[in-house]
Simulated scan of single mutants.
Amino acid sequence: MERSDWRWVGRWVKTAGKEEEHRKAAETTRDHWREVALDVGLDPDKNVTLAESEKMLAVAITEQMDTLFREEGTSWQYY
């Protein structure tokens, strides 16, 4: 998928001394959204990602997953 096909749901700027804390938070968030994808019948490997750059960690879901929650009555507040 292209970058524009993803919706960021969490970002962490890498900060000296907090690398492990940020990585754990990002992985926990990714795992949560993977479980959500399974709950709504989507493949978590294709719909949730953890991206990393030199300065940041980010978790994203696909545009398809985002649209499912926005347009098909699934409440974001539940998750």
Score class of each variant (00 low, 15 high):
77 Q>N: 14
68 L>G: 04
4 S>R: 15
71 E>M: 07
63 E>T: 07
11 R>S: 11
54 E>I: 06
68 L>S: 09
56 M>Q: 12
74 T>Y: 15
57 L>T: 03
7 R>Q: 12
36 V>T: 10
54 E>F: 04
72 E>H: 12
6 W>I: 03
2 E>W: 06
17 G>T: 01
75 S>N: 09
55 K>Y: 07
11 R>E: 15
10 G>E: 02
60 A>M: 00
57 L>C: 04
50 L>D: 00
21 E>R: 06
63 E>M: 04
78 Y>C: 05
5 D>V: 03
35 E>W: 09
47 N>I: 02
52 E>I: 01
14 K>G: 00
75 S>P: 04
12 W>N: 00
14 K>R: 05
64 Q>N: 13
21 E>Y: 03
54 E>V: 10
64 Q>T: 12
52 E>P: 01
19 E>K: 03
16 A>Y: 06
3 R>I: 14
15 T>D: 03
50 L>E: 01
1 M>A: 05
55 K>F: 07
67 T>F: 08
8 W>E: 15
34 R>Y: 02
58 A>R: 08
43 D>S: 15
1 M>V: 09
74 T>V: 14
75 S>F: 02
77 Q>Y: 14
65 M>Y: 07
51 A>G: 13
23 R>E: 11
37 A>W: 12
31 D>G: 01
47 N>D: 12
43 D>Y: 05
52 E>K: 02
47 N>H: 15
26 A>M: 01
8 W>L: 10
50 L>W: 00
46 K>C: 09
28 T>V: 10
26 A>L: 05
51 A>D: 12
5 D>S: 09
27 E>W: 06
41 G>P: 11
76 W>Y: 14
40 V>A: 09
26 A>T: 03
18 K>N: 10
10 G>D: 03
15 T>W: 02
38 L>C: 12
64 Q>K: 03
